[in-house]
Amino acid sequence: MSKTQRIALVIGLVLYAVLPQFLKSYGVYLMTLLCVYLMAAFGLNLIVGYAGQMSIGQAAFYGIGAYVAAILMTKMGISFWFALPIAAIACFVVGLALGFPALRVQHHYLAFATLGFNVLVFLVMRNEEDLTGGTFGISNIPRPSIFGYSLDGALPFFYFAFVSVILLAAVLWWLLRSPWGRAFAALRDNPIRAESTGVNITAYTLLAFAIGAACAGIGGVYLAALVNFIEPGQFSLSVSLLMLLAVIVGGSGRFFGPVLGSIVVVLLPEWLRFLQDWYLAIFGFAVIVLMVYLPGGLLSLGDRFKSGGGTR
């Protein structure tokens, strides 16, 4: 990261932290939702952008996280602070179990497997009424409190989610710069050379997939606490597809790509409300144009004008 980029990042974060003070509760809700969505999107970027695999099932993990937390908190009275790691670990384990067989056969099979998995998870959420509440979902999910300080209000919960997503991003940033993360750069640039220097491609990819799934699970827990109510429709296949498009539109394999992409799919439709259904229609066709002219995503626009200086 160059100095200017670092300054820009700090300014951006400060602005984002101050802005909700001037917004009504719906505005604060949207800004919180963006933070929550970003947790899952950062995870997806790890899978798509760094490990080079297509996942069309991120919403399934988002949903597993949300449902595990909601069930633990509402039906068993377990606190948020225990539900969070349990949900994350559950997603990590499920990610390993799904990714291990699917990644044995390279190519696009992880994409197919995650797609099928998402549909399956959706069916279970919708049909297992005893556990998941079926189409009625689960309501009255409580918000956590921290050191005795309640996070029920819109603003306190916003700051909680905001700090959490920064922490999550920091962990991922650190991971990608560790020797483990460096192996990805090697994989992406030259898989054969990487393998010959002892990088176990399958193991690395699998771990990336599971960590990405765990990130989505964490996001899901925050989502459940944010909206207090979850139902299967929030985690359908189309949600996964939109999230994948968000990461790619922003610039997959760029650390801040998901941020831009999530703004495009979470915040922009609200600002451009007058467009209604046309918004997604325009978005869909814009994706095609983008793929033809700028397959690296919006963030690669800068590189078009000056080479180097990217945040890859």
Binding site: L245, Q276, L280, A281, G284, V287, L290
Partner: peptide, 17 residues
């Protein structure tokens, strides 16, 4: 693949809207 996903969303919403 991504472009066909975009096409799918675009066409669907175009018909809806």
């Amino acid at each position: 693949v991504i472009a066909t996903l975009g096409l799918s969303i675009g066409v669907k919403q175009l018909v809806k809207a």
